[in-house]
Design a protein around this nucleic acid. Structure first.
Lengths: 396, 396
DNA sequence: CTCACTTTTTCCACTCACAGGACAAAGGGG
DNA sequence: CCCCTTTGTCCTGTGAGTGGAAAAAGTGAG
């Protein structure tokens, strides 16, 4: 199928497209209430959008007391692909233009296999989604990778956990393979955009989104826009020192947050505790599975295992220490905690909260919610779809 | 004298005013090269600006090979007042519309005397500058205060070191007293704006400006704009924990950066060292002056005193630890160190650099200059003038 | 000094975006 | 069936802005 490559011709059209994306089908009259344009001008722009087929007519709206208005909506055939590449698994989802997830697949995978192998798998997953009838093709794709990205070019730079990706032209390569526009960003930034679009951060302009997965990262949103830093490595908080002269870290330093708490560190600590017979619960799980992961710790904690709870609390305290510093510095309006370890849930959250509220000044914490992400594993792919839609729904 | 209260009528005029402010007198033709407007449109807008008397004709420009162009410049009678209120002293300066300092006074003063007493002194200083013939009146004033500010209203909020200021309507009160528009901001933010306008940060979009004075604060510039946070307390890094279970701090916690290194902490440490006879140099200074301050430590260090040098190095290391974390998080393009203790100079800078380059990842530090501010004590007042000029040179 | 060539400035006609009023179309409620 | 409200369309006026032409004011070579 021929995809629709049209782009809005001006800022008004872009504005309208985003309103339709975020607010769903809408009548012309309702749109008029939101955009501060004369009815005539609005009609012209809507007509032009209808011509491009980016939006289509959608029946009549409910009456507001007078003549019924005609609804319009984004073309229901538009499809975005959201890809969230994690350290150990990959999520691929298809959304419509309103960024609703129509289909979602998760598969285990190791980023260290390199970009070629990974994208082969991603393309296969995308093909599978397409084959299941959810999409005839893609109008755009957003890709999240677990490391810093030179954003304008869509190229990973010096990613510590994914050697072999450095300099790989992700954007260009995938754009070729998929035959549609592609944008690439850090997975943490996409999680932040996801929570901003459809999750807990919908109404907040300045917030932090801390993702605790295999590693730890932090999405920074300033004035509603993701902040990426000078070289694209902003938010790389995993290597902030949390414990002076603490554990050695893969980066060469000691005491990095990530060395003391992250999916990987938690798995290692749990294995150690199991081997030392500190926890029967963990030991039995280790015997059954052969290895332990953060999921096992979460399960053990849920079962009341004291060792697991301690591990989580201590990790939360460490994380809270770092976050407390960031809160003092950045004074956000919200802190979102997400990522693979959200299964650790409220034990973790409580430990983080305690530490942040204790260590930061009242003016910064006074009205500061610290909450778990609302979208779980879908935050990344929704953020990815949001990324590409923001790009496509902006003046050419 | 009647002041010129005119404001630019549109974005084009605002743009032109800022170009003239930042680039000095300029010919119409040169302006045309910078603004991407048709000659006709440019001529119209310039004529309107001339009518408002915000800009005036300024003779003929040098020939570029053809007909000579007429120069225009900002009205040379325009005057801005820059006020930088520190914890222990206050700076007041008069600038022209190009933000060049025409006169500058510094006087010791204690903020804790409260806003009424302080502003009495500030107004006296402003009157003195006016009386010396530098200004017939002020077209706008920028005020920096050493604590968080609710920026839109220009009101200090919960300032820890200046009780009695909480909620005082600084902007409104001074606007009344001075009879001109006033903007108020945190002193650290103003220092950042100063270094951005006329100092080391001229070409950098994202940078941090760490001010080490009586306390420690950090100005954050994102995309060329000062970021103030949700409640105006962004950059309040003095109470980030630098030493776990370290010294008690006035804020109630332990180990805050400010408790371990700042003008106040340094003075206290030096006094202690002198009393314990660890340093002859410091001891003799203590006897002579009765008290010690950061300036004495700087002098002792310059004289080669080992104890003073150690104090500075250790403080720099602590500060560097905190900055390293901020660099990982924020990935700035530049870090500026300034404030009263800049006298400690390169000993301090070297200690900070060592720590940051050691603790942050290469991608963030690879091309990261860490430098001393270029403007010294004038950074604040220039930033203050810049603040109000930005306000006045924006569409009404 | 004159002439050819540049650059700057002014003038003017034309385009385009947009607002807002008039009016037609469509629906609700008595 | 009538009156009122809302929605959609049409049309004209206005003001911003562009770009070309030509005048004004220089420069430099011969």
């Amino acid at each position: 199928m021929r995809r629709m490559t049209a782009r809005p011709a001006n800022a008004h059209q872009a504005r309208l497209l985003r309103l339709l994306r975020d607010g769903g089908p809408n009548s012309r009259a309702q749109l008029g209430d939101q955009v501060d344009l004369s009815r005539s001008k609005l009609a012209v722009e809507v007509d032009r959008l209808l011509e491009t087929e980016l939006v289509v007519a959608d029946g009549l709206a409910a009456s507001r007391g007078g003549r019924r208005s005609h609804n319009i909506r984004l073309n229901p055939h538009l499809r975005f692909l959201g890809v969230d590449i994690g350290a150990t698994s990959v999520d691929v989802a298809v959304t419509n233009a309103e960024l609703e997830i129509l289909g979602h697949i998760n598969q285990p995978m190791d980023v260290r296999e390199g970009p070629v192998a990974v994208f082969e798998q991603v393309l296969a997953m995308a093909a599978k989604l397409r084959a299941s009838g959810l999409a005839e093709g893609f109008d755009g794709a957003g890709i999240g990778v677990p490391g810093p990205v030179r954003f304008p070019e869509g190229i990973p730079v010096a990613p510590p956990i994914m050697p072999g990706w450095d300099g790989f032209p992700v954007r260009e390569a995938l754009s070729q393979d998929l035959g549609c526009p592609v944008m690439v960003d850090n997975d943490v930034n996409l999680m932040a955009m996801g929570e901003q679009h459809a999750g807990v951060a919908r109404t907040v302009a300045d917030f932090l989104c801390v993702k605790i997965g295999t590693g730890i990262g932090c999405g920074i949103v300033v004035g509603g826009e993701v902040y990426r830093g000078t070289t694209g490595s902003a938010g790389d908080i995993g290597h902030i020192q949390a414990v002076p002269d603490g554990r050695p870290c893969a980066c060469g330093n000691r005491g990095c947050l990530e060395a003391h708490f992250s999916g990987a560190a938690l798995a290692r600590d749990a294995t150690e505790a199991a081997q030392q017979r500190l926890s029967a619960e963990l030991a039995s799980r280790l015997e059954t599975n052969g290895t332990l992961s953060a999921v096992d710790v979460a399960a053990a904690a849920a079962a009341g295992d004291a060792t697991a709870l301690d591990l989580i609390r201590e990790g939360g305290t460490r994380t809270g220490q770092v976050i407390a510093g960031l809160v003092s510095f950045f004074n956000p309006g919200l802190v979102v905690i997400g990522g693979g370890v959200t299964g650790l849930g409220h034990t973790l959250l409580a430990a983080i909260r305690t530490q942040v509220y204790r260590q930061s000044l009242p003016l910064a914490t006074g009205n500061l919610p610290i909450v778990l992400g609302e979208l779980g594993p879908t935050a990344g792919v929704i953020g990815a779809a949001r990324l590409i839609s923001d790009h496509l729904f902006s003046p050419a």
